[in-house]
Design a protein around this nucleic acid. Structure first.
Length: 810
RNA sequence: GCGAGGAUGGCGGAAUUGGCAGACGCGCCAGACUUAGGAUCUGGUGGGGAAACCCAUGGGGGUUCAAAUCCCCCUCCUCGCACCA
């Protein structure tokens, strides 16, 4: 056998260069031709790609190449989510400028992606830290500001008193600073917010109506994240004061049973009420303990419910009951209004609290067939029932009373029906350098003013000192800070916070449609051709964050008139993680497998085969060096088979059997690729290869081999191109059509029928295809094995499944 | 606690509609070629049994001629949410 050794280290770079030189993956809109937008989630340029990236991009690349061969114009772009903290940390630690660190990383990682052989249109590449990108993001922000969709509000941030800096939540886990382990403090700061809650209802509705191509798991997570809850609000008068306490409840039917009031300890009224009643010491102790409850025990619910009486009372608006006002550690400030009317007889938390502090219970819902006695109850009754001691509503069913009481409150001006969302407005201020500057100038006389479009972008200044201390690094750059007011020309100071990097990744999929467009964020006609994304692929970890924000931005951009689209992504796939030795790959565990090493040793095609074959895309994948060896062996086998055939083939004529195998394999691989079952698609190709290997290659016709090359091309693109030329073809496999199967050629003249007796396999017979059920039944009953199994008993019933099986019931 | 998903050989996994359980691959065993094999090729490989056969898809029950697949109960694992009023 004369054979040339398979040499991926030579073949792969050669084909990668050729694709690049020939702009093989460059696409432009072609009206009238079907398009396909395939997108993988924007990577952060951390330095090197990891196996999770390899998996993500390999899955995407197979789908992209498959669609190309099916005649689609495929938009398959790649770029960089380039702003963010790691760049700044590198600057602090290694004295590298974040821009240099970032662009160096991008250059290296771009090379890695090219070595994987992915089919990206590199001419559309951009980094989100490019001025030409964030300029348009700043424009979108100013338009939102002008409409009141972006606003400032005071809220708390994590502050490390030792490092003298603001910490992100992930840097303050467990309430300690990630760098120095000091206890983290909370500080009030004025920050920018986006009114995502204005879109809560539409975001929720479209989860059901428009995200039909998304996994249910993600849709459920989004629904819960938005967290819509219907109920009523009620205003309670405070004794001796003009202001009121507003509460939200999902159980207005229990209003007549409200006997005290619970406020979050951060509630603005708590301190004032306690002070005016001389009870600030008691409150201080509660706050000291409550603010120390860490995230872990809050989740586990392992801390005790406790509270502090403020000394003040409010009045139940329907009963006139004097309700003591407590600060309670289990009421959270950032849901509803941070105030809860306590109904101890019908809410378990309130029940426990009332027992601890000796507060009164009032039963207002009687369960069916049972009478509740406040003095002997051991738990709250939270179920439905008939209203008792509830004025005009007494005797009404609780479900009907919910609406009736809410409507009554509205009539009397005491409250009314309302809905509450768990979703909160999006805080986008970051006290960081490496982000897009928020384009606002504070003027002493005009207040905050948006930077006009002509003055955009507000460029991030290059020369900044990175100490890791202080609040916003930009605040120390006077040349940046001082700027005239765009309105009155007077003295002004720039906003020195930068934007959350989730903003960049919220609209990049639109920018890819017209990445060089310089008259606005996007060219509307390009967006209408390419969008929505037909297939989006990425990690499940973005199920609520990124995937809600980009949906929100789509609606905002639509309402700003920039695009005509309600949802950015038609179909979503969330791929599983890559593990090694049962754990997520990480430097600290020392179980990282470096893609570069593997490419150098086995070639990209072998890695692609391994990663696709080892597990279906949605499931987690366990890395296996032996599995990779096996994939590599298969690639070698493919090479040898086809190479040997090219060396010496005798113009064979297709036998029925070869044709049957060919068409059957095309069918199987096509159907499996369509539903993203790449592991079984590859298994099907392996079986075909096993079959061909058993033949005298001289008898194998060209179409059998050519079909094989085309079928493997999305999986092992370099190998396919090389072998395609070897087989005498001049054009790239990319310009070939995906093979088509002929159902008529798949059918065999004989078929195997399984014979069961009492549901157990007893024999198999070969019959001509299309034999009638009656004849098959007769043949089955004639089998000697069947006779033995029946042991002389008569058949009570015979079930025949055409072309498949006969089951004889005795 | 609530919600979602899952459990199939030594391992990864397959079985599209209820119809031959274990495709394909890894590993392992045997053989061929070989100075050599961690290369390549051939064959074997769920468990028990000499065999006929029997047992087997986390455990238990059920529906059905027929169940990995449908229904009920239970165990364990993974993920998400969580004092949300």
């Amino acid at each position: 056998m004369s054979e040339r050794a398979y040499n991926p280290q030579e073949i792969e770079p050669r084909w990668q260069k050729r694709w690049e030189d020939e702009h093989a993956f460059k696409v432009e809109p072609a009206p009238g031709i079907k398009k396909y937008y395939l997108l993988e989630m924007l990577p952060y340029p951390s330095g090197r790609i990891h196996m999770g990236h390899v998996r993500n991009y390999t899955i995407g690349d197979v789908a992209a190449r498959y669609k190309m061969m099916n005649g689609f114009k495929v938009l398959h772009p790649m770029g960089w989510d380039a702003f963010g903290m790691p760049a700044e940390n590198a600057a602090i630690k290694h004295k590298l400028h974040p821009a240099k660190w970032t662009y160096d990383n991008i250059a290296y990682m771009r090379g890695q992606l090219k070595r994987l052989g992915c089919s990206y249109d590199w001419e559309r590449e951009f980094a989100t830290c490019d001025q030409t990108y964030y300029k348009w993001e700043q424009l979108i922000f100013t338009k939102m500001f002008e409409r009141g969709w972006a606003y400032k509000k005071t809220s708390t941030v994590n502050w490390c008193p030792s490092c003298n800096t603001v910490l992100a939540n992930e840097q303050a886990e467990g309430g300690v600073c990630w760098r120095c382990d000091s206890a983290v403090e909370l500080r009030s700061m004025s920050q920018w917010y986006l009114r995502i809650t204005d879109y809560a209802e539409e975001l929720l509705r479209d989860v059901d109506e428009k995200l039909t191509g998304w996994p249910d798991r993600v849709r459920i997570m989004q629904r819960e994240w938005i967290g819509k809850s219907s109920g009523a609000f009620v205003d309670f008068e405070i004794e001796g004061r003009a202001d009121k306490i507003r509460i939200f409840t999902t159980r207005p039917d229990t209003l007549f049973g409200a006997t005290f009031m619970s406020l979050a300890w951060e509630h603005p009224l708590v301190e004032e009420l306690s002070r005016s009643h001389g009870r600030e010491n008691e409150l201080k102790e509660l706050v000291a303990r409550a603010s120390r409850i860490d995230h872990q025990s809050r989740l586990a619910g392992t801390y005790e419910k406790e509270g502090a009486f403020t000394g003040a009372h409010c009045i139940n608006p329907v009963t006139g009951w004097r309700m003591p006002i407590y600060a309670a550690n289990f009421v959270v400030m950032d849901y509803g209004t941070g105030a809860v009317m306590a109904v101890p007889a019908h809410d378990q938390r309130d029940f426990e609290f009332a027992k601890k502090y000796g507060l009164e219970l009032k039963v207002v819902i009687e369960p069916d067939g049972e009478r509740l006695d406040p003095s002997t109850m051991t738990a709250a009754w939270e179920g439905p029932g008939t209203l008792a001691e509830s004025g005009q509503f007494t005797g009404m069913r609780s479900d009907a009373a919910m609406k009736a009481i809410a409507d009554y409150l509205k009539d009397k001006g005491l409250g009314g029906p309302t809905v509450t969302y768990r979703l909160k407005d999006w805080c986008i201020s970051r006290q960081r350098y490496w982000g897009a500057p928020i384009p606002i100038i504070y003027c002493d006389s005009c207040g905050p003013v948006a930077v006009p479009e002509n003055d955009l972008p507000v460029i991030l200044p290059h020369d900044v000192e990175f100490t890791g201390e202080g609040a916003s690094p930009l605040a120390k750059v006077s040349s940046f800070v001082n700027a005239p007011c765009p309105k009155c020309g007077g003295k002004g100071q720039r906003e020195t916070d930068t934007m959350d990097t989730f903003i960049e990744s919220s609209w990049y999929m639109f920018r890819y449609s017209s990445p060089k467009y310089d008259k606005g964020p996007v060219d509307k006609s390009s967006v209408s051709y390419w969008l929505p994304v037909d297939q989006y692929i990425g990690g499940i970890e973005h199920a609520v964050g990124h995937l809600i924000y980009c949906r929100y931005f789509t609606k905002v951009m639509r309402d700003l008139g920039l695009i005509d689209l309600d949802e950015p992504v038609a179909n979503l796939m969330t791929q599983g993680m890559v593990y090694k030795d049962g754990a997520k790959m990480s430097k600290s565990k020392g179980n990282v497998v470096d893609p570069d090493d593997m490419i150098a040793k086995y070639g990209a095609d072998a890695i692609r085969v391994f990663i696709l074959f080892a597990s279906p895309p949605e499931k987690d994948l366990e890395w296996s060096d032996q599995g990779l060896e096996g994939a590599s062996r298969f690639v070698w086998r493919l090479w040898r088979l086809i190479d040997s055939w090219c060396e010496d083939h005798g113009g064979g004529v297709a036998s029925d059997e070869i044709a049957r195998w060919k068409h059957r394999t095309i069918k199987r691989v096509t159907e499996d690729v369509e539903r993203y079952h790449f592991n079984t698609a590859i298994a099907g190709i392996m079986e075909y290869v096993n079959f061909l290997q058993g033949l005298d290659l001289k008898s194998v016709p060209a179409d059998a081999i050519e079909t094989l090359i085309l079928l493997i091309s999305p999986f092992t693109p370099h190998l396919a191109e090389e072998l395609w030329r070897r087989a005498g073809r001049k054009q790239s496999v990319l310009s070939e059509s995906w093979p088509v199967y002929d159902e008529g050629k798949i059918a065999s003249s004989m078929q195997t029928i399984v014979i069961q007796v009492g549901g157990k396999l007893r024999d198999k017979i070969e019959v001509p295809t299309g034999m009638s059920d009656e004849e098959v039944k007769a043949k089955a009953l004639a089998s000697s094995k069947v006779a033995a199994a029946m042991a002389g008993k008569a058949a009570r019933k015979v079930i025949v499944v055409s072309g498949k099986l006969v089951n004889i019931v005795v």
